[in-house]
Design a protein around this nucleic acid. Structure first.
Ligand SMILES: [Zn+2]
Ligand SMILES: [Zn+2]
Ligand SMILES: [Zn+2]
Ligand SMILES: [Zn+2]
Lengths: 166, 166
DNA sequence: ATTCAATGGTTATAGTATACTATTACTGTT
DNA sequence: AACAGTAATAGTATACTATAACCATTGAAT
């Protein structure tokens, strides 16, 4: 299965085999879409692959620039349509504070996650911390607020960049 | 002082005196800027007033449209500069998931807050819940992540719209 | 008065996202 | 084979959000 059945994800390790990250993400996506009866077309699959280029969220227009090199006539809607599909299927997440997209670490089932985003290396780690969700639910509940959707994004320095920096 | 010395803010009540909200926000801003020795110019003050038009976050270009009606030559930079100043002074917050701005309920000192945003009436309530901040700090800390900035935005239905809706 | 940094005006451009229309590819039906 | 229905993609234009770059003015401090 995918990389992330961990309850709590981590930042990818420094010298990790990222080709394997990508391959696993694509395999998981293939299996998931097959099971759901939705089509991970060549285009959508390629956009997913481009999003997985690194663990740093990538902008839609960066995806477009790369896609254009191999796909004549690629235009903004080409990318946004693919990203919309991938988001609907939970295969990518949007990072609101960056206007950018990142591959989901654990797309098997719907979930709300939190993101730690390193301002130095750009990498984003996806967490699913029940304690955070509990605290949010409590706070919203006490005001009678019905939560439909959550955005939790923390920006700062990951452990690695914190050490190597000053 | 301002409206919000509450530990936990609430959604503004249905028939509340919003003119008073605005007046208090402006008074607080005047006092705060005077104390800090920064200039809340006529333009900046007017932009703050426009942001406080309602408790719903407002887009920069909506501010611009209104400002243009009374201020010749208002252009995007006019508004963004004023908003930048107001954000630096903690007088307005940016809602990342809406690309919009909202007045701060308690600008007296720097703080990280959370937002509950009603998808029906548009209003945003600003919370400062220590339990949420604790949960976030714990989670980030356990990964050695140094948090510099937080975005916590929950979208859904406020108590009022939940009742009046279906 | 002189000076310098802060403020704002103006024009242009970058960056992000969607609306709208048309076409293609695949499916099953007649 | 001809047809209709559907999903996916193409193509064009436009809306929306934000910043760059350069210049004129203001206003507080010396
Ligand atoms: Zn990897
Ligand atoms: Zn990092
Ligand atoms: Zn009010
Ligand atoms: Zn509401």
């Amino acid at each position: 299965m995918g990389k992330g059945n961990d309850h709590k994800a981590r930042f990818a390790e420094d010298g990790h085999d990222h080709r394997r990250c990508i391959a696993e993400a694509l395999e998981t996506a293939d299996a998931l879409c097959a099971r759901r009866g939705v089509r991970l077309t060549k285009l959508r699959r390629r956009v997913l692959e481009l999003v997985w280029t690194s663990h740093a969220p990538i902008g839609a227009y960066d995806v477009l620039r790369r896609l254009s090199q191999e796909h004549d006539g690629a235009a903004p809607p080409t990318v946004y349509r693919a990203l919309d599909f991938l988001r609907e299927q939970g295969l990518v997440h949007r990072i609101e504070s960056l206007n950018a997209f990142v591959g989901c670490a654990d797309p098997a089932e719907a979930h709300t996650s939190q993101f730690l985003i390193c301002q130095d290396c750009g990498a984003a780690a996806e967490l699913q911390d029940p304690a955070i969700n509990r605290a949010l639910a409590r706070s919203a509940g006490s005001l009678g607020f019905l939560v439909k959707d959550k955005t939790v994004e923390l920006r700062g320095l990951c452990a690695h960049c914190r050490e190597s920096g000053a």
